[in-house]
Design a protein around this nucleic acid. Structure first.
Length: 449
RNA sequence: GUGGGUAUAGCUUAGUUGGUUAAAGCGCCAGUUUGUGGCACUGGAGACCGUCGGUUCGAAUCCGACUAUCCACCCCA
């Protein structure tokens, strides 16, 4: 296929048949965040390149080889955001939110861009739901941020997912740990794989993450960051766990969690699943007490997480979780002849003004074809308008499920049809509730809201 | 950046050791006489068989390169 009719590698089209799923998930996560006091922030898709090199870290893979960076016509180096935290922090700082009452809690859904080789659950343009909480160093905030993600998974009905947490300390205790780690790996240098040899100088903590069996084995006996935490960091981590315990959030401490972005300090966490092929992290985040300062602001402790929307959707699919269906057409107005078509247009307009999902034939096809179409789109009711009906002021409304036909006056169609439709919806709801033991009403309501 | 798999209608696929008009199901459009959908039946549109080159009398089929895509490594959400 010619390139011109091909989406760029690593990008995805969300087609009309599926977009309601994205809409539902996006609405849901923002609403949940809102219940915790996180309000949406929207920042530009591109930023000055330096923002990312400074915050994400210029030795990280993300910055070194994955950013979409270009020069604009004014000679500025611009980068398509590879993640959401830096932009949010920049906006927070730029607009003086440091002077507002703390904590400041923001949420967002953003597109992100990373030049990576696409594979299952990994795209070059992907979307992240994220939250950030500024202005608190308290472990209570760590627990709260984690609990937002936990609530999202719980609400969506995802079960096979686990939470792993760790503390990577502050710059002080990490310095000591790095030295110890380096000494340890140095002693077994000959056995490490090629990439890990590189890591030894750049970022020895990454070796802990290596999947090669040999390195993995060596890493198993490596010193553990938790043994090197300073008293404050240790205390902080203990309290985070205590909060989580008391919030009923199940987690596992994994001393080998390292994050690939430089700005993290102290608490880091990941929500992992086996349902996504090689990509196991659906949500990851942590504390970044030094970030705001790093980009030129005052010292503002902060933390947050990012959750991959596409991965979340994949996960829902993999676990067979049914999402609410898209809204269906309430009434389809079939029409025969030009006069009727014009009448149908007027009727549809009136219905829509009353908030009804109404459609009428705009193709000029046979009645049979119109009925077929109405069936295909799942219209709940249909009515047929012809010259005779207009003269007689009668519209025969058919319930597509039961086949039942009701006659309504055309000149007061919108009002009377509303009653019919509401009655029908009430009956459906009644059936739904009485016929099923395991209906999650909150989801049903989510669908019609 | 490194490996492996795959490439035939909108979708899912068939295509026998190379042989003439490339097949099916789903979907789409229309019809099966009068103004009512689902079911069934009939018909139709839709494919330069990913691209370029090679082998051959002859290539969707064999070979090569390229491209795309999927999966994995790396890294990450």
């Amino acid at each position: 296929m010619a390139l011109i009719t091909k989406a760029v590698k690593g990008t995805l089209d969300v087609l009309p048949a599926d977009s309601h799923k994205n809409q539902f998930v996006e609405r849901t996560v923002l609403e949940i965040a809102n219940e915790f006091g996180f309000r949406e922030i929207r920042t530009p898709v591109f930023e000055h390149t330096e923002l990312f090199t400074r915050s994400v870290g210029d030795t990280t893979d993300v910055v070194q080889k994955e950013m979409y960076t270009f020069e604009d016509k004014g000679g500025r180096s611009i980068t398509l955001r590879p993640e959401g935290t830096a932009g949010a922090a920049r906006a927070f700082l730029e607009h003086g939110l440091t002077n507002e009452a703390m904590p400041q809690k923001v949420s967002y859904i953003t597109s992100c861009y990373r030049y990576e080789k696409p594979q299952a659950g990994r795209l070059r343009e992907f979307h992240q739901f994220g939250i950030e909480c500024y202005g608190t160093a308290s472990p209570a905030a760590d627990a709260e941020v984690i609990s937002v993600a936990n609530e999202v998974f719980g609400f969506l009905g995802i079960d096979r997912i686990r939470l792993e947490i760790n503390s990577i300390g502050c710059p002080e205790c990490r310095k000591e740990y790095h030295a110890a780690l380096k000494a340890y790996f140095e002693s077994r240098k000959d056995e490490l794989c090629g990439t890990c040899l590189d890591r030894l100088d750049r970022n020895p903590m990454r070796i802990l993450d290596c999947k090669s069996p040999v390195c993995h084995e060596i890493a198993a006996d490596a010193p553990i960051i938790l043994d090197f935490l300073c008293d404050e960091c240790k205390d902080h981590f203990e309290k985070v766990k205590m909060y989580l315990d008391n919030m009923g959030i199940v987690y596992e401490v994994n001393p080998h969690i390292v994050r690939g972005l430089d700005y993290y300090t102290r608490t880091v966490f990941e929500f992992l699943t086996d349902s996504l092929g090689a990509q196991s992290a659906v949500c990851a985040g942590g504390r970044y007490d030094g970030l705001v300062e790093e980009i030129g602001g005052p010292h503002v402790p902060a933390l947050g997480f990012g959750m991959g929307i596409e991965r979340l959707l994949l996960l829902l699919e993999a676990q067979g979780i049914k999402l609410p269906e898209a809204k269906k057409c309430e009434i389809y107005i079939a029409n025969i002849g030009e006069e009727a078509s014009i009448k149908a247009a007027a009727m549809a307009t009136e219905l829509r003004q009353s908030g009804m999902f109404a459609e009428f034939d705009v193709v000029g096809r046979s009645l049979k074809a119109q009925m077929k179409y109405a069936d295909k789109i799942g219209a709940r009711f249909t009515t047929v308008i012809g010259e005779d009906d207009i003269k007689a002021n009668v519209a025969k409304v058919k319930n597509m499920q039961t086949g039942e036909v009701t006659e309504l006056a055309i000149d007061e169609f919108a009002d009377t049809f509303m009653e019919l439709s509401l009655q029908n919806a009430a009956n459906d709801l009644q059936d739904l509730v009485s016929n099923s033991e395991a209906i999650d009403l909150s989801k049903f309501l989510g669908g019609i809201m």
